[in-house]
C-alpha cells in the first residue's frame, strides 16, 4: 500500500501521479478576500486527463481551475487566476459565498 498516496494530501498525490508518468499541474490559493472557503496555501492537484484531488474553494471554482490547468499542462507557463463576485464569469462558476480568491496554477516539471 506504500504506493497509494493519501488522497487527502494533494502534494503527495502530485508526486505519485508524476511518478506514474501523468502530466501534473498544481493550483495554490495565494490570496483571499472576504469569506473565502479555503485558506491561503490550499492546493488542488490536476492531471492531464482532468482528474483532481484537493480543493481551492468549496467546490465552486474547481471546474474553471481544472480547465485552465489543461492549458498550463500543455504550455508549461504558469497562470494567475482570479475568481470573485466582481467577475461575471466567476459568478457564473459560482463563488457564491461572496469571497474573492486568487489561484496560481503551475506545472510540475522534472
Amino acid at each position: 500500500m506504500q504506493n497509494e498516496p493519501n488522497i487527502l494530501d494533494p502534494l503527495a498525490v502530485a508526486e505519485t501521479w508524476h511518478e506514474q508518468g501523468r502530466a501534473v499541474a498544481l493550483a495554490t490559493v495565494i490570496e483571499t478576500w472576504g469569506s473565502a472557503p479555503r485558506p491561503v496555501g490550499s492546493h488542488l492537484v490536476i492531471d492531464g486527463e482532468g482528474n483532481f484531488q484537493g480543493s481551492v474553494s468549496g467546490g465552486c471554482v474547481e471546474g474553471a481551475v481544472i480547465a485552465e490547468a489543461a492549458d498550463v499542462i500543455t504550455s508549461g507557463t504558469p497562470r494567475l487566476l482570479e475568481f470573485g463576485v466582481a467577475d461575471e464569469t466567476a459568478w457564473r462558476v459560482g463563488l457564491s459565498c461572496g469571497g474573492r480568491i486568487r489561484v496560481y496554477v503551475e506545472r510540475i516539471d522534472g
Partner: peptide, 28 residues
C-alpha cells in the same frame, strides 16, 4: 514547480520538518 522541489517538500513533511516554499509569481 520542479519535481525535485516537490520531492524535497514531501520528504520534509513526511519526516515532520517545517518547510517554506517561495514562489516567484512573475518568473514562475
Amino acid at each position: 514547480m520542479e519535481l525535485s522541489t516537490l520531492q524535497a517538500l514531501n520528504v520534509a513533511r513526511a519526516s515532520r520538518r517545517a518547510a517554506v516554499v517561495v514562489t516567484d509569481l512573475s518568473e514562475g
